[in-house]
C-alpha cells in the first residue's frame, strides 16, 4: 500500500486532525466522501460534515434519552440519586431563566436546558485524548476498505463553525420570530429604525441596529467556535511533543479546559436567555 508510506509531518498531522469527514458533491456532479483536504475544499457549500453531525446527534440523543428516562420515573417523593442530579440541573436552568428572562414563554427554559447540556457534551468531547476517536474511525474506515490516511474524523462538533453557526442561526430565527410576535412587525421595525437617534437619523439607526442584530448570532457562534477550536489546537500541539512530556502538559490543560467547557456552554445558554428576553421586551 503506497498510502502507508506517506510521511507524517507535524503539518500534515495537524491538518489531518482539523479536517472533517466530508460527504458532498464533487465538481463533476457526483456525490461521495472527500478523500483529501483539497477535495473537501472543492465541494464548497454542497457538502455535509458527517463527523460533526454524527457526534452531535449521538450526544444530543444521549442527553434527551437520559433526561426522558429520568422524567418518566420522576416521583414527587424522596428522589433517587439520578433524579437528584437531573433536578439540580433543572433548578440551575430555572434559576438562570428566572434571573434574566422576564417574559412569559414556556419554550425558553427547555431551550436553555437543551443548549446548555448539548453544548456542554459537545465541548466535553475535547477532553477525550485527541487521537483516540480518530484512530477508531480510521480502523472502521480501513475495515470498509478505505485508505487510513483519507479517513478524517474531527471529534468535537463545536470546533466546526458549521455547528455553532447552525445553532446561533436557530437562535437568530427565534429572536426575529418572537420580536415580531411580541412587538408586532411595526414595533420591531420601529425598534430597528427609531433608535438610538430619533427619526431624522433613520438610515444610520437602521445600520446601527442592523449590525447589533446580526452581531448577536455571529458573536454567539464565533465565541464558542473560537474557544473550542483554540483548545483543541493546543491539545493537538501537545500531542506532537515526545510522549514522556505529553501528560505533564495535557493534564493541566485538560483540567483547565473543563472550566472552559462548562463556561462556554454556560455563556451560550445565558446569552440565549438574554436574547430571548430582549426579543420579548415590549418597550425599548
Amino acid at each position: 500500500m503506497s498510502a502507508t508510506n506517506e510521511v507524517i509531518t507535524s503539518g500534515s498531522y495537524i491538518k489531518h486532525h482539523l479536517q472533517n469527514l466530508t460527504y458532498g458533491q464533487f465538481p463533476d456532479g457526483h456525490w461521495g466522501l472527500a478523500h483529501t483536504v483539497s477535495e473537501a475544499k472543492e465541494m464548497g457549500f454542497w457538502a455535509f460534515h458527517l463527523d460533526t453531525l454524527g457526534v452531535s446527534f449521538v450526544l444530543g440523543a444521549l442527553f434527551l434519552i437520559f433526561f426522558y428516562q429520568v422524567g418518566k420515573k420522576m416521583t414527587s417523593d424522596t428522589p433517587s440519586g439520578v433524579q437528584n442530579f437531573v433536578e439540580s440541573v433543572i433548578d440551575f436552568i430555572n434559576e438562570s431563566v428566572r434571573g434574566s428572562f422576564n417574559g412569559q414563554n414556556p419554550m425558553v427554559a427547555p431551550l436553555a436546558l437543551t443548549t446548555f447540556i448539548w453544548i456542554m457534551l459537545m465541548n466535553t468531547m475535547d477532553l477525550v485524548p485527541v487521537d483516540w476517536l480518530p484512530y477508531v474511525a480510521q480502523q472502521v474506515g480501513v475495515w470498509f476498505g478505505a485508505n487510513p490516511h483519507h479517513v478524517f474524523f474531527k471529534v468535537v462538533p463545536t470546533t466546526d463553525p458549521n455547528a455553532t453557526l447552525g445553532m446561533s442561526i436557530g437562535i437568530f430565527i427565534l429572536i426575529i420570530y418572537y420580536s415580531i410576535k411580541e412587538k408586532g412587525a411595526g414595533g420591531f421595525a420601529a425598534e430597528l429604525t427609531f433608535h438610538p437617534f430619533g427619526k431624522m437619523m433613520l438610515p444610520f439607526n437602521l445600520f446601527l441596529e442592523g449590525v447589533n442584530l446580526i452581531a448577536k448570532p455571529v458573536s454567539l457562534a464565533l465565541r464558542l467556535f473560537g474557544n473550542m477550536y483554540a483548545g483543541e489546537m493546543i491539545f493537538i500541539l501537545i500531542a506532537l511533543l515526545p510522549f514522556w512530556i505529553q501528560w505533564g502538559l495535557s493534564l493541566p490543560w485538560a483540567i483547565f479546559h473543563i472550566l472552559i467547557v462548562l463556561l462556554q456552554a454556560f455563556i451560550f445558554m445565558t446569552l440565549v436567555i438574554v436574547y430571548m428576553d430582549m426579543a420579548h421586551q415590549k418597550e425599548h
Binding site: G24, W46, L113, D160
Partner: peptide
C-alpha cells in the same frame, strides 16, 4: 468550510429543543 452541515445542525437543534420542550421538561 461553511456548508450544508450548518443547516443539518440547525434542524437537529430545532428537533432536540422541540423534543425537550414536549417530552423532557
Amino acid at each position: 468550510n461553511i456548508n450544508l452541515t450548518m443547516f443539518g445542525q440547525l434542524i437537529m437543534f430545532a428537533m432536540f429543543t422541540w423534543f425537550c420542550m414536549k417530552f423532557v421538561w
